[in-house]
Nucleic acid binder design. Structure first.
Lengths: 209, 209
DNA sequence: TAGAGATATGACCACGTGGTCACATGTGGT
DNA sequence: ACCACATGTGACCACGTGGTCATATCTCTA
């Protein structure tokens, strides 16, 4: 956690630093990100950096915490807005909301992308310890609920389905990124909706004739 | 491509260098890997390194090429061994062979893992240019074939299914890695087989009741 | 045996890194 | 007006990086 000095800073200066850090970490990931660059971008001297944060990792974990909080807030708002959806509808909602999140919070999304690629294990575990992996339990909860309601077949393995949904969720995002890059969301909304429906169709009916 | 000097080297010295490079790149990825470390590990002086390779990227692309060739050979042998399998059987074969490859060639598998995480775009594109992405076309071919044979439903979106299979394939591998680490393959063969069957079951029948 | 051309070698370079520290500047209370 | 203490600051450190180059050592031909 950042030192008290950091939180005593005037809000706009703090925000400058946060913005600069998000920018750097979302482009470079933890290990290749440069504290010098963050200082230069936010206009603070090197010495001040180490007045505010104990080290690079301290800042990184703080930034990731902000991003995680934001994303969780985003999803849970979406889910509670529509209670009593079927599993398939819930999944559809999460997919589309996932894309929406990446669109409205591109920096946070990029941060997450970089995090999943991070090779520095100590940095990864430090972030995870500070709270994540809730998406897995979220999916498992949804699946169990749906089974209880008799929505889906009992022969479906919950663990396997959860893995499938997780990998699918990230795959959809990177697919959209690869295909349309940073182009406007609205322009390709139809394509994306159609693609998601195709996936859901496979998921629901299976591929058998 | 390495310089001629490199290929004139006695085979065991060349192999030492290759081994050291694989070790380093599979642990650190391209951008964080250190040429100094590779020199130290393989026992060659710094000067010799730059006698053999034009630069770090030259060596990296060469190593990746070796890994890709090996993996493609592995898969195509497996597929041609059993001609006339159904799509589901082909997919099952690829999943299990994928795990087997990761088990028998852990270094190469780790190399691929690191590559997919690589953030240095120039390195990525240099490797891709030298030949990859065949797995995507492989899946698409299999799907088209299966459709032609009337094995799977026409309403299934080939592109969507291919993406699903790709992401699932890598997800299965990292899942196994996370769960069982480097433990012996045989010990958990049953678990893994069971897990794969669960996934194939969802894929085939869908999740609907 | 001489000499030419390929190959081996490690000291060296400029640079960027994360992190430190002595000192300058601000701020609030007396 | 003073002083104590929090805060700001950038020159500096040791180190590791990818890459170079003059020189030493081979090897093979004449």
């Amino acid at each position: 956690m950042p030192r008290e000095t950091f939180f005593n800073l005037p809000k706009d200066k703090r925000d400058h630093i946060i913005t600069a850090a998000i920018e750097e970490f979302s482009q470079a990931g933890y290990s290749t990100a440069s504290t010098n660059q963050i200082c230069k971008k936010s206009g603070i001297p090197k010495g001040s950096f180490y007045q505010y944060f104990t080290d690079k990792l301290d800042l990184y974990v703080y930034i990731m915490t902000l991003a995680i909080e934001e994303k969780i807030r985003f999803f849970s708002v979406a889910l509670t807005e529509f209670p009593a959806l079927s599993l398939l509808e819930q999944i559809r909602l999460l997919f589309t909301k996932g894309i929406e999140f990446a669109k409205t919070h591109p920096q946070y999304a990029a941060l997450g992308e970089q995090f999943s690629k991070e090779s520095d294990e100590s940095a990864k575990s430090a972030v995870i310890k500070e709270g994540d992996k809730r998406s897995d339990t979220l999916f498992l909860q949804m699946i169990d609920q749906a089974k209880a309601k008799g929505e889906i077949d009992d022969s479906v393995d919950a663990q396997a389905l959860s893995l499938l949904l997780q990998s699918l969720n990230s795959a959809v995002n990177s697919y959209m990124q690869d295909r349309y890059g940073s182009l406007s969301y609205e322009e390709h909304e139809k394509d994306m909706k159609h693609f998601i429906e195709s996936l859901l169709n496979i998921l629901y009916r299976g591929i058998k004739k």
